[in-house]
Design a protein around this nucleic acid. Structure first.
Lengths: 345, 345
DNA sequence: TTGAAAGCGATACCAA
DNA sequence: TTGGTATCGCTTTCAA
């Protein structure tokens, strides 16, 4: 009974200090390896720490000092889309290696979810925030500005970011793909993707795509944006819906490779062959592409690297190193053989 | 100058109180909707909160009171394995819906990483911890016990958990698959999976599998455990390696469906057909299975539900509701047509 | 209905 | 090389 002097049953630094017969300041210094104590004292304190199973309360540390927490809030739309799972993996690995932790927020592609999550996470005094996309609610933007913590907006490269931004230019990547497909002789093209309440990178990509296709004399005859997760089966039934709308589509561009693979399976099930009967183009160059027999036409984007870059920028900022505020991570088109081959002239 | 009374530039509750002309206690009560104040006071305080853009510092709240934080530490091996991405999604969605946040830890299948992560996370006073697997380092176990926070061990159902456990019996699921394949007439069977420093659920599954196969008169002629992520390409080159070891393998069991798909692509590339030339069995019934033309023999496991269940158990415990400490989430075998059909007798 | 004072677990600052 | 004291932002407790 006389042993505990706190509400909780946890061992505090002053208990360690008492056990070692020193002041808590001395114990604190030993703990932080700050120097300014004798070896004998150090050994004694360390012994008691071990003996009592002391675990520091970092809440108190942040609270007391001028240090920030080691939390970094990471907002990601969803993990069913493999693209984002990879980005998150890249982020967390890098952050973890430098003693930081990701506080996850799955925003389900809605600004409201993101706003609520930001409010909560900020109340935990995070070291910084990594947000997916360039769109945020007005209140979210305001809170972020007031909070004054470093922010990295990822995925959709933002030339005028709240703070820092890393990603790719989705409009351009869509544009390049559009130009490529038109260049391969496709006229009537379809698109299958997903959509949500807010505009996002996929929307931007589609804009670029349409512009290039139409500018090149082709036509995006049908765009299907399903309110669903961007994964295999969505691509499968999306393709079914798209093709049911007749109009002789010659080629389909998908939001990502998983959807494209779903689509390929659908057309195969209908006895169509790729690319003879229909062209297929994905996006993202996802892991599945590495095992397909026919190289999938796609757009390579280094997702893991993107996540790592975001974490690096955050870490650099946190250690007051200079950071380039916008970093373009790049992409490159993979021609593949799921579309018609280039015509010989 | 006279306005700020803190080290940080953030607005504190006492500043709100001062602006409203009340004591900080009154402001605190309004904030928490505790009652015991007039409507006029409430309105005034709320107005100032809005005006000053006050955001509470929850670190201080936890620190001061006897409440716990809303953090739940979630340790997951990796996100490249789609299985775990799904589990995490299930966990975070459910936790988020109840005002909790996941603090992520990617342990890379090592006990040491997990231990380090646990030490750090515990120092932030989390409400609880969700850990993947039943194996933890001795020091980790000790810290966990001392911390006295709720723990859910997921994935590998643990009949004597540290605290709570939810998952499936991997031995049994492997056993069932082994018995099934032997029942379909396979004698020489191969296995392709991944392995890491520590025994894990996949290892347990393989044990059950071998036991059933050998008990049924078959033989697991070759087991390949690659030190890699359990995804498509690993299945592809693993299969290449496995088959290069000659010995006429009739059927291959994979650690999961993504690896199995990679394997199917490899055998197809060699001109073998499934199941005529070789049988293929996956595990997990992952999203890709839903679009394949030939139903993949697999084991259905409700990953998302498993994650949700883990979160539910945690939340129940946190609100002092009674919780069944072990929850078996179940699995069921999907016969599929990537193995020989049942023989007519 | 309101407020004043003590305290949570650590660190900063100054004194010895 | 050490220790005392004030302090971080909030809640608890007790008094008005």
């Amino acid at each position: 009974m006389s042993e505990k002097d706190s509400k909780t049953n946890k061992v505090s630094l002053s208990e360690v200090a008492r056990a070692a017969g020193v002041s808590k300041m001395t114990a604190s210094r030993v703990l932080r390896e700050e120097g300014g104590y004798s070896e004998k004292t150090r050994a004694l304190v360390m012994e008691k720490i071990d003996e009592l199973g002391y675990l520091p309360n970092r809440l108190a540390t942040v609270f007391a000092g001028d240090t920030t927490s080691t939390f970094v809030g990471v907002a990601i739309p969803d993990l069913g889309n493999e693209v984002f799972a990879q980005v998150l993996e890249g982020i967390d690995r890098k952050l973890g290696a430098f003693g930081h932790q990701s506080v996850l927020g799955l925003t389900q592609h809605t600004l409201k979810e993101e706003e609520d999550w930001i409010r909560t996470v900020l109340s935990w005094q995070p070291a910084g925030l990594i947000l997916t996309g360039r769109y945020h609610s007005p209140r979210a933007t305001e809170m972020i500005k007031n909070a004054g913590v470093p922010i990295v907006e990822i995925w959709d490269l933002n030339s005028s970011p709240l703070d820092m931004s890393v990603g790719i230019n989705h409009f351009d990547s869509g544009f390049d793909m559009g130009r490529f497909l038109v260049g391969r002789g496709y006229g009537k093209i379809g698109y299958v993707g997903t959509s949500h309440d807010t505009a996002n990178a996929a929307t931007t990509r589609l804009d670029g795509f349409c512009k290039a296709v139409e500018g090149g004399g082709g036509k995006v005859v049908r765009q299907l944006c399903l309110h669903d997760t961007a994964t295999y089966y969505t691509g499968y039934y999306g393709t079914e819906q798209l093709l049911a709308g007749s109009s002789r589509i010659e080629c389909i561009f998908y939001q990502n490779d998983t959807m494209a693979f779903g689509g390929m399976q659908y057309v195969a099930s209908k006895g169509m062959s790729v690319p003879a009967d229909i062209g297929i183009a994905g996006w993202g160059d996802l892991p599945i592409a590495s095992v397909l027999q026919r190289r999938l036409t796609s757009m390579h984007v280094p997702h893991l690297k993107l996540g790592q870059a975001a974490a690096e920028m955050m870490l650099a900022r946190l250690s007051n190193e200079p950071v380039e505020p916008c970093r373009d991570i790049g992409f490159n088109l993979i021609p593949g053989s799921t579309v018609k081959s280039a015509e010989r002239t």
